[in-house]
Amino acid sequence: MNAILNSLRTMGLIFLHAFRKRATILYPEKKPYIPPRWRGRIVLTRDPDGGERCVACYLCAVACPVDCIALQATEDGQGRRYPEFFRINFSRCIFCGYCEEACPTYAIQLTPDFEMCEYDRRALVYEKEDLLIAGPGKHPGYNFYRVAGLAIAGKDKGEAENEAPPVDVRGLMP
């Protein structure tokens, strides 16, 4: 008798679940909420004034545990460094975020986008043109060259943050 009551109670409970709020969603018609710090598709961001943030320091590449980032540094005529090419092989990427952690200029960032399926594995190799976005991403105000000592176009020696004007080496004053 007890066993029958138990079964009925169980069935009742299960029936009540039909009126609960659903845990599953109808993906892809409905998109799930992804927190902003989700480690998804990698992008390269830009300075607040529009310049490429990546200075091609190779730190993301060396931090990458699966060695899926390759780049080559180059320089414009006025001292600003940027990657001549920047390639991420997403078929190898494990989205660990070490590259973002290593990046000294906030250039490389992981985004809340995980929808990267391709029918062709080769299409998972992203070049710089595929990675660059138009904005600064998570760190809107930061501009590496404003704090670095290197002179670039539009920022001479001594014009960076917290820098004194260049020393006059021919001056006799103490």
Binding site: V43, T111, A134, G137
Partner: peptide, 24 residues
């Protein structure tokens, strides 16, 4: 590898994330 790469967006992928709080 050392020549400038063709300036393309070969996948036709949008370079800007459309749902993220990032960029435009």
């Amino acid at each position: 590898a050392i020549l400038p790469l063709p300036h393309t967006t070969p996948h036709g992928l949008q370079p800007v994330a459309d749902r993220s709080p990032l960029g435009r």
